[in-house]
Design a protein around this nucleic acid. Sequence first.
DNA 1: ATTTTTATAGATCATTTGATCAATAAAGTT
DNA 2: AACTTTATTGATCAAATGATCTATAAAAAT
Lengths: 208, 208
Amino acid sequence: MTDAAETGETSSRRRLPPSERRRQIVDGAVAFFAEVGLDGNTRDLAKRIGVTQSLLFNYFATKDDLIEAVYEKVYLGRLSPDWPERLTDRSVPLRRRLLDFYTEYSTLIFEYEWMRIFMFSGLYGAELNRRYLKHLGDVILKPLLGEIEHAATSGASPVMEDIWNLHGGIVYIGIRQHIYRTPCPDDPSEAITRAVDRFLMSFGIGEG
Amino acid sequence: MTDAAETGETSSRRRLPPSERRRQIVDGAVAFFAEVGLDGNTRDLAKRIGVTQSLLFNYFATKDDLIEAVYEKVYLGRLSPDWPERLTDRSVPLRRRLLDFYTEYSTLIFEYEWMRIFMFSGLYGAELNRRYLKHLGDVILKPLLGEIEHAATSGASPVMEDIWNLHGGIVYIGIRQHIYRTPCPDDPSEAITRAVDRFLMSFGIGEG
DNA sequence: ATTTTTATAGATCATTTGATCAATAAAGTT
DNA sequence: AACTTTATTGATCAAATGATCTATAAAAAT
């Protein structure tokens, strides 16, 4: 079976608009590097996409540039800008807000490519990774802390580490699934609901 | 500065007993691969250890064999065999047992080399990684579930995913510290204590 | 002291791999 | 239909890299 056959191409040399070809390369690179790691080689990547290896360097000067594009692609739009607002909308019960957020967020991030690229880029010290986590902390988790503080009725008041703990416990489901590839619930929503409820209960937050 | 100077060697050719040299190589490889990733090259590794690159292949037939030795070294003895017993010793309050376990366990695993080798090996699908997690689940977390069930006084009874959630929330501290290299508490024990207490409280478990 | 053994170094091989460049053909233009 | 443009290919380079092999010197054995 030829590469052309694999990608459904019919001619051996298909000429695409540069923007489209670029997108195709980045998409292929995301899938490829997520699977084999960022040290995957450009020949295997090209074969998988169905183009020549040299073509990659027509669109990206270096392999690092391509990886940078992979980062951008994967990280882009992962954090919806309307969440800060929705998370602090006190006309909605806090439990509802939390569940809505983590239900949406988990479907966004419990995804093979994102999870693995995120982890690889983190391990290799990518700037984007740290920026993302700082951003997450600033625009999601810090406001969340404020909401918990506001709603808390029991004596103990939450600190930032508590929020990270809630977050980490949930994210860890995705890590088990896509990094360690260990048995996991197919639908994490129940586990998430239980985690959120435990968290709220511990601060004396009920239905309000 | 020569390599010999870096490692404190005086002669340019120091002859060591094979067992000692092997240990030196594995130790160096653990530190090296943890830092730069498993795709780090053998020349840099050898330079760092202070030996020639060819010597590595006198002790390990292939680079993969060396990495396998790195895995063994890092994974070995990470799960103390007496924890299952201590975790189920009902003469000790459950809270105490949980705190003791996670205090000890976190000092063991919140370690640069372990955290990163574990993550790299997980990403690359190492068999040892999955074996370790299965073992952890079987001999630590499952018994833990039994203890929570036994002590729970509130209506809701715990399921295995709840235990993984507790565990993941704690492990995530180490991930933030060593994988993402993001700001973290220097001493995680307070965060751990709070997480454990929240967890117990949500199942109606107090001081008993 | 002399010989033997073997841990280590240095040189080198064979692939792998990122990157380059001229030739080519597919699409657009006149 | 002829011409121009340029996306793509195929061949190739240069460096990196895992691995091998022989010479050597540091111990051990005699």
